[in-house]
Design a protein around this nucleic acid. Structure first.
Length: 422
RNA sequence: GGAGGGGUGCCGGAGUGGUCGAACGGGCCGGUCUCGAAAACCGGUGUACCCUUGCGGGUACCGUGGGUUCGAAUCCCACCCCCUCCGCCA
């Protein structure tokens, strides 16, 4: 959501930012509507002002037992003008809201311009791809051979794009989540949260998933949406709040299932558990002072990287191009883990700074210690990490020649000291 | 599912047709006092928008949207949400 006044003062910058995201210029249409709305508002307020004055006079005259018929007649004429102006005002407000709420956030300076992921920039790599003296398998080959990853049974229950994990793999997933939560809460200052997974429409609007991306969400018959990520709930925690400046930054982490309809993803990543309707994720969300969000973005990304590093996984950090960024983001880093079975890097975390974009939609503000009024907070979210995909990465990177899988050292305490699976 | 209660400012909570942007209390900010702090006391403390070069003026907002009225936090209608009790239930 945008600040109209900012668009008024910077129409060219506004359109240029949208242009970098391949959105047609909007400033002229918005400002035309805005000018009409303000003209109407001014006229309406004058009429209201006159009405209020006359009403006071009527009250005064009547309390003295005098005659107010003349005044009542005059105010009667104003009435239709006021009602007409109010109706137009509602129309303008709604039109502007619809127009503005459908536009993506402005990309930060330095974000590469491009149509899709091919324009993403690799910033750095960490670690090295493991060497194998055999042909590394893909995660589903490993899991199915162990009898611990069952797509057929999941399909019997729920159809395609679901998986059922058993035994040591189910436990490995739980171990990964517990490890991630322990690091983020114990070392990085995030507060563990166990949130609702079903939310109402206004919550989905706040993060920018509605109104434009409804088809990506699952919706219940009573009008609830299933969260596609804990970002949606953790961010909306501050919806319509006015926080004290000392409350910032507010750092939360949650381990939750995520539900995605994967509309439009037909034929993409159909094998294995890379792209599912339901997956588990540890999500980080920070609510910050506007001046701190860029530094927090680096910090959050580092927190996510720490998990990969301690798991001994090789990865690279990508700066997403304008065409690959989410609707609400102004800058996004993706962490891509190396998957030897796939012989490619795959996204395992995505860390975004949304600036005040979501805060405006949610009306989430803080009260500065100095000065008057309130300011919008900044919001950031990042996976720390996608647990299902981390499981994939562990399987493919730690696979053994005999079909088993070694357990990374940091996870062994979570598995009763076990050093291998299978 | 049945019955009832309620949504007011940063928070709690009054307010049933005009002088209510809204009592009172808490919090917060400033001051007095103090070596310093606490306590006490004094003062201050809404948001958004419009017009204006400025000084300043004005409008809206008491869950949301309509309506009645010269005038609505207050009356009417619809909707949303929350809570309590009973029932059901992990």
């Amino acid at each position: 959501m945008y600040d109209l006044r900012w668009i008024r003062d910077n129409p060219d910058a506004f359109d240029a930012g949208l242009g970098r995201r391949d959105v047609a210029p909007q400033a002229a249409a918005i400002l035309k509507l805005d000018a009409e709305a303000r003209a109407n508002r001014t006229a309406l307020q004058e009429a209201q002002n006159r009405r209020n004055e006359l009403s006071k006079q009527i009250g005064a005259a009547k309390s003295k037992g005098g005659d107010a018929d003349g005044l009542i007649a005059e105010v009667g004429e104003l009435k239709s003008r006021v009602q007409d102006g109010e109706e137009k005002e509602r129309g303008f407000t709604q039109s502007l809201r619809e127009l503005l709420s459908g536009l993506p956030n402005q990309p930060e300076d330095g974000v590469p311009v491009g149509a899709d992921e091919d324009a993403n920039q690799e910033l750095r790599q960490h670690g090295e791809a493991p060497a194998f003296d055999f042909a590394p398998k893909q995660h589903f080959e490993i899991g199915e051979a162990l009898g611990l990853m069952d797509f057929d049974t999941a399909a019997k229950l729920s159809g395609s794009r679901f998986v059922l994990l058993r035994g040591e793999l189910a436990r490995l997933e739980r171990a990964l989540a517990a490890f991630m939560l322990d690091v983020h809460t114990g070392e990085f200052g995030y507060t563990e949260t166990s949130p609702p997974l079903l939310v109402r429409a206004h919550t989905a609007f706040g993060t920018g998933n509605l109104p434009k991306f409804e088809e990506d969400l699952f919706k219940t018959e009573d009008g609830f949406y299933l969260i596609p990520t804990a970002e949606m709930v953790l961010t909306n925690v501050v919806r319509e709040n006015v926080l004290a400046e000392d409350d910032l930054p507010l750092r939360q982490v949650a381990y939750t299932p995520c539900f995605r309809s994967e509309a439009g993803a037909a034929g993409k990543d159909t094998r294995g558990m890379l792209r599912q309707h339901q997956f588990n994720k540890v999500e980080l969300v920070s609510i910050t002072h506007p001046d701190e969000s860029m530094a927090e973005h680096e910090r959050m990304t580092e927190c996510a990287e720490q998990i990969l590093q301690r798991l001994g996984l090789h990865y690279r950090v990508m700066l997403l191009s304008t065409g690959d960024m989410g609707f609400a983001a102004q800058k996004t880093y993706d962490l891509e883990a190396w998957l030897p079975g796939q012989d490619s890097y795959r996204e395992i975390s995505s860390c975004s700074n949304c600036g005040d974009f979501q805060a405006r939609r949610m009306e989430a503000r803080y009260k500065p210690k100095q000065g008057k009024g309130t300011r919008f907070v900044h919001t950031l979210n990042g996976s720390g990490l996608a647990v299902g995909r981390t499981l994939i990465a562990v399987l493919e990177n730690y696979q053994l020649a005999d079909g088993g899988v070694a357990v990374p050292a940091v996870l062994q305490p979570y598995l009763g000291g076990q050093t291998r699976i299978g």
